[in-house]
Design a protein around this nucleic acid. Structure first.
Lengths: 230, 230
DNA sequence: TTAAAATCTGACCAAATGGTCAGAAAAACA
DNA sequence: TGTTTTTCTGACCATTTGGTCAGATTTTAA
C-alpha cells in the first residue's frame, strides 16, 4: 500500500507541447525527470514551505536547469499540487486497517503501527501535508477534502458498529480517530520536538516501537473490554 | 497564567534611535504599536508562514506604514523572533499542572484541559510555533530549545516518581508526554482536519469539552490504578 | 519657549524570483 | 536519410520584496 505513483501524467504538463507521448504509459525520460523534480520538491517544500521554496532550488536539487522544470510543470503551484496529490493516498492507506469485521484491538493497533511506520519512513511528505493544513489548506482541492471527510465518516461508523456490538467501550469515534491521528502524526511532523523530548539526536526504529507500544497499551487497552475477548 | 507579555523590550528595537525611553516601562505609543505589529504578524505568519508573509502586509494589517515597522524592528526575522518568543511561555504554562505531589489524575487532566483551552483560544500562535518546528526550528534559539528539553526532563521525572510511588501504572513518561502533547495540539494546529473529521464548520467550546473528556477517559483512566492497583 | 529626543513616512533601490521564449539538441518516426 | 516530435537550455524580463534614508512631525525635557 505504499503507492509509488511517481510520474503519473502530471496536471499541467506543458501547454507548449501537448506531451504524453504514447497515451499514458510514459517511457523513460519524462517519467524519470518528473520523479526527480517531485522528490526534490518534496524535500524542499517540507523544509521551507511553499513560498520559501524557489523553483531554481528545486531544479538544482533535481539536477536540471530551471527552464526544464517549466517544461514539465506550468507553474510552481503546479509542482506543489502534484506533490500534495501523492500524499492523499497515504492519508487513508493506514486507515485501511479499520474494517467492520476486524477485531477492534487488532485493527486499531494495525492502524497505529502503520501510521507510525509511515511517519518513520515518509516524514518529509507528512510535513508538507501538515504545513499545507496548518496554512489553511489553500492548495488542497475540494474533492480531496471531501474524500478525507468521507473516509473519516466511514471509519467512524465502523467504530460505532464495534461499540454497538459490545466489542468496544463507548467512545466518540471521531475524537478517537483524531487522538490516534494526532499522537502518531506528532512523531513525523514534530520530529524535532520528539527528539528533544526523548533526548535523542534522531528517532530510530526502536523509538517508534516504544511509541507504538505505549499508545497501544494506554489508549487501546482502555477501550477494549478486558475480560471477554483476548 | 496567560502571559500577556506584549510589548516587552523587543530585541532589535532600532539602531537609529536607541529607544526604550524610560528604562524599561514603556509608556504608550511604542508599546501599543509593537503590540499591534506583533498581533498582525502572528495572524499572518500563522496563515502564510515566514517567507509567505510580507512585512508590507503586516504593516497594513497593523495600520502603519511599512517604514514604521522598520522603526521598531530591524528586520522581518526580528519580528518573527519576537512572535516566537511569546510562544515559549505558553509552552510550559500548561505543564505547570504537573507537579510531584499532585494527584496524577488531577494533574494530567489539568494539563490536558489547559492545553486544549490554549488550543481553543490561541490557535494562531500555536500554528506559528508548529510551522516553525515543522520547518526545522530554524529560528528557535538554542536556549529556547534547551529550555523545552529541560522542562520535559523535569516532568518526565515527576511522572516516573508517580510510577515509583505506585500512583501510576508503568509507562514511558516521555512518550506519554508526547502523546498528550500530540493529541491536544492537533485541535489547534490541524483545526481544519478536526473540523472536517467532526463535520463542523468551526470548533466550538463543546467540541473541546468532548475532546477533553475523551482523552481523559481513555488515556488517563488506563494509567491511574482504578481501585486496588495493577 | 526652546532644545533634544522619539516617532513617523514617502520615496527610493538593489537583489531576487517566477515565469517566458526562441532556438538548439536529441529521439522517434517514415 | 530526412522529417517531425519531444526535450532541453541560456538568456531575458517584469514584478515583487526586504530594507534604507533623509527629512518632517510630534513628544518630552529643561
Amino acid at each position: 500500500m505504499d503507492g509509488d505513483g511517481i510520474g503519473e501524467p502530471v496536471k499541467g504538463d506543458t501547454r507548449r507541447k501537448p506531451a504524453a507521448p504514447d497515451g499514458g504509459r510514459e517511457d523513460g525520460v519524462r517519467r524519470r525527470n518528473v520523479a526527480r523534480i517531485l522528490k526534490a520538491a518534496t524535500t524542499l517544500f517540507s523544509r521551507k514551505g511553499f513560498e520559501g521554496t524557489r523553483i531554481a532550488e528545486i531544479a538544482e536539487a533535481a539536477g536540471l536547469p530551471k527552464a526544464n522544470v517549466y517544461y514539465y510543470f506550468s507553474s510552481k503551484e503546479d509542482v506543489y499540487d502534484a506533490v500534495i496529490k501523492r500524499l492523499i493516498g497515504d492519508w487513508d492507506a493506514a486507515l485501511a486497517h479499520i474494517t467492520p469485521d476486524a477485531d477492534p484491538r487488532r485493527a486499531l493497533e494495525g492502524y497505529v503501527r502503520a501510521k507510525l511506520e509511515h511517519a518513520r519512513k515518509h516524514g518529509e511528505e507528512s510535513r508538507v501535508f501538515a504545513s499545507e493544513i496548518i496554512g489553511g489548506a489553500r492548495f488542497l482541492s475540494r474533492k480531496d477534502r471531501q474524500h478525507m471527510r468521507d473516509v473519516t465518516r466511514t471509519h467512524a461508523a465502523t467504530i460505532d458498529g464495534w461499540i454497538a456490538a459490545g466489542k468496544l467501550r463507548p467512545v466518540d469515534p471521531r475524537h478517537l480517530l483524531i487522538m490516534l491521528w494526532g499522537m502518531t502524526q506528532f512523531y513525523a511532523d514534530f520530529e524535532i520536538l520528539a527528539c528533544d523530548a526523548l533526548e535523542q539526536p534522531k528517532l530510530r526504529r526502536g523509538d517508534f516501537d516504544v511509541a507504538a507500544r505505549t499508545i497501544v497499551d494506554t489508549v487501546l487497552s482502555s477501550l477494549v473490554p478486558q475480560q471477554g475477548s483476548q
